[in-house]
Amino acid sequence: MGPNGSGKSTLAQVLAGNPSYQVTQGTVTYDGQNLLELDPEVRAQNGIFLAFQYPVEIPGVSNAYFLRSAYNEIRKAKGMEEVDPLEFLDLVEEKLKLVDMDESMLSRSVNQGFSGGEKKRNEIFQMAVLAPRLAILDETDSGLDIDALRIVAQGVNTLRSPENATIVVTHYQRLLNYIVPDFVHVLSNGRIVKSGGKELALELEEKGYDWLQNVDAGAGAAA
């Protein structure tokens, strides 16, 4: 969590490997590897997934083709066989239900003409299919009405397991009513200024981010 401009989205983009961000110092260790040395697609193949704050529209590429390509690239990287379109369809049917989307979305172009809510649900749908070990949800709650928020949260909760981790980036406590966090870290000016349990989010909601301006940053290393 953190106020506007505190670096939450920057952190999310850097973890996913967005080439528009240059890391000038520090390291990110993931599974014993220096994550910063890996290309974004290799990170994804190693189980990192970023749910975009602003999912990208790609006219001319169907969701089915896009997601099957991604799925197969990840399988290939793991030395597994690729799946054909029919197998893939079987596989995604259930995941579509999870986010309350219709099969017809598969033949539509990626995010093109999708409402804000549909785009976010599509992100969670992709996450469900690709089954990452570390998912980063960048402001997935922004622009969502309460029903869409519930669907998204339910999706995230269903996918939660001891084998994976999720970083949820948000600046409202609202989402955390649906997705209960194990830890809350508060970012300010690019540093973690406070860490705690789920009750920290409630405290922030009550006292506002101003409250933290006076709090001395403790051990502010990145997770």
Binding site: E41, A44, L50, F52, L67
Partner: peptide, 12 residues
């Protein structure tokens, strides 16, 4: 769009 595809495991 390129980064979006890369972030899903699809190489350049």
């Amino acid at each position: 769009a390129m980064f979006y595809l890369n972030s899903r495991g699809i190489g350049r």
